[in-house]
């Protein structure tokens, strides 16, 4: 009897501690937000947020911290990357989910998994070796000069880095669409592509949108690979061949000197906070869509 009670007690205790532990991930998100905000407060106390976000002057020694060029730099590099990545990733996901034979599909999935595991520094080294010279040459063809360290180089490297995110989410979305819908369309005489166009893409549209948003937010926060190929000049880029200076690169490049200039550390933590808030908004939106899709399947 006593033994039984002890076993049940252990079960109850384990469940209780697991339940407490289960609040940790949610709590962690809040803690990260809070921690960054506490550090950023120092700068927010002396400067209004709007003047920081829309100011263009970045002179830490004079105490002026304008994030505008960095925010726009991030935005343009990410947007260009998505324009390159989305069509290719979407077509690949359709092929793998609707057309490819089983062998090719599983081989391709392994490839995509491997690609998602490649460290960002390796992407960066590859970018420096191949993409940057290529872009410099391309600029020559267009009659402009570029060192190659540019928005376009960052976009190309980023596009490849977000392939796995978009493809894996799209594959799950397409797999959640019932076989019957496809069969009905095919039975009505639609070709395979017409079925994709009118059934799969229509039914999967919210999920594909979520996949794109997740890819966007992944690209938005990517640091090392972009930092290595994008040139890091604090300006609002005017063309694809211009250098840019994205927000994550700003944080990573200046960690060394931030302690020696007043408010510098506060400014960098604010940059991280801005980055986090934007990424969280994208993520929450995408995840809410995906949770609804998953519930539909069950």
């Amino acid at each position: 009897m006593a033994k039984e009670a002890a076993r049940l007690g252990r079960d109850r205790r384990a469940r209780r501690s697991m339940r407490i532990l289960s609040f940790l991930p949610g709590l962690l998100v809040v803690l990260v937000l809070l921690g960054l905000f506490l550090k950023a407060r120092g700068l927010l106390a002396v400067k209004p947020l709007a003047s920081l976000l829309f100011g263009s002057e970045w002179k830490p020694l004079k105490g002026s911290f304008g994030f505008y060029p960095f925010i726009l730099g991030t935005f343009w590099v990410t947007l260009a990357a998505m324009i390159l990545a989305v069509p290719v990733a979407l077509m690949t996901s359709i092929y793998l989910s609707e057309y490819a034979p089983r062998g090719i599909r599983s081989a391709a999935k392994s490839f995509v998994d491997l690609l998602s595991g490649i460290p960002s520094v390796v992407f960066g080294v590859w970018g420096v070796l191949m993409v940057v010279p290529l872009v410099a040459k391309l600029a020559g063809l267009f009659g402009t000069y570029s060192s190659g360290y540019s928005v376009l180089s960052g976009a190309i490297v980023l596009a490849i880095m977000v392939f796995p995110t978009i493809i894996l989410v799209c594959l799950e979305v397409f797999a959640s669409i019932s076989r019957d819908l496809r069969d009905a369309s095919l039975a009505l005489g639609a070709t395979k592509w017409e079925t994709v166009k009118h059934v799969i893409l229509r039914k999967g549209a919210p999920g594909v949108f979520a996949a794109v948003v997740l890819g966007f937010s992944r690209a938005f926060g990517e640091t090392m690979a972009v930092l290595m190929v994008v040139g890091n000049v604090a300006q609002v880029p005017k063309s694809l061949f211009d250098s840019a200076y994205p927000l994550p690169a700003l944080i990573a490049n200046n960690y060394g000197e931030m302690m020696s200039v007043p408010l510098y550390d506060s400014a960098l933590m604010l940059a991280a906070l801005v980055l986090l808030v934007l990424v969280l908004v994208f993520n929450l939106a995408a995840r809410l869509i995906l949770v609804r899709i998953e519930r539909r399947v069950e």
């Binding site: 289960s22 949610g26 994550p248 990424v279 993520n283």
Partner: peptide, 26 residues
Amino acid sequence: AAARLRFALDVLWGIPSIVYGAFGFV
């Protein structure tokens, strides 16, 4: 509870590593 935890984990997954670094610094 399970759905909530999965959601929190997915959101956590989306946080860029540079932000973790900055949080670590704090």
